[in-house]
Design a protein around this nucleic acid. Structure first.
Lengths: 145, 145
DNA sequence: CTGAATTTGTAGCCGTGGCTACATTTCTTG
DNA sequence: CAAGAAATGTAGCCACGGCTACAAATTCAG
């Protein structure tokens, strides 16, 4: 379809890009809820400073994003207190981690170095459909055998 | 590393997210130059209307982005004329298409339906390192045999 | 308990990529 | 060739996710 001799249907192509743009909107949310969940599990709480440090952004940016997450019902935060996940946020975190781990496992099984696998997975995980995820899982099993 | 019992080094984690943010910046450029190259190859020229239709955005958005691509030296465009790629833009287009095709081929080989493979590849291709790309190529060969 | 350090919040700026609405130019067609 | 259609440009709006700088609250030491 994307060969140089012919172009696919414009509407179909537009739908793909639309899909990617849509995924972008949820990417940040997924990364944050996953990290918040990790911090709660390990440290007992999730605080702005550590989110900022681990995301590699300023605390002001974290604040702004946490505000959005709260508006969207993923997170509960009160001024100067630590951050909690709503049920919906926790579900998203679990799902995000599941995807992340499937992608990482597959990449490692495919022969990618652990470091690169982690890096690439971070970018890939948000763009993998359930169908593809299933195929990657299956493939990981086959490779390992 | 991302298991629930321990957290990896904060700086390393931040570097990953930084990498993803960096990739985001070039994503749009890659998608546009690839599409422009396709249109030139098939239609003989790339025009704003068709870019807009195929990207699924308004022509105003296309205009703005083409302006940025020109500032960045990827594209040449004169008012009311069609759009051309610079050498640098063409290189980027070729490289983007190469990545795209490797990812699509791999996904199909992995058992993903052609439609889903195309959709997911659009999101994935920008986040795959050279190392991973090589592994995917190799794996595609093995699966097909 | 008070003062300093830390954490958190807020204001205001920027670039990007969306959009609509309107202006202008080019193309097409009668 | 002129008029209408189509394409392109431009202005101005928005939300997002960056940032710095400054303000306020909380925590921690002494």
């Amino acid at each position: 379809m994307t060969s140089s001799s012919e172009l696919e249907n414009a509407a179909l192509q537009a739908a793909k890009f639309e899909r990617v743009r849509e995924a972008h909107k949820t990417e940040v949310a997924e990364d944050y809820v996953e990290l918040i969940d990790d911090l709660i599990n390990v440290n007992g709480e999730a605080r702005v400073v550590e989110l900022a440090e681990r995301m590699g952004v300023s605390h002001a940016t974290v604040n702004k994003i946490v505000g959005r997450l709260q508006r969207e019902g993923l997170v509960i935060s009160r001024p100067y207190r630590s951050i909690f996940l709503t049920d919906e946020g926790r579900e998203m975190a679990v799902e995000a981690r599941r995807r992340h781990e499937i992608v990482v496992k597959f990449l490692k099984a495919a022969g990618v170095s652990p470091e690169t696998a982690e890096i690439d997975a971070e970018g890939i995980e948000h763009h993998v459909s359930d169908e593809t995820l299933d195929c990657l899982s299956a493939l990981t099993g086959k490779i390992e055998i």
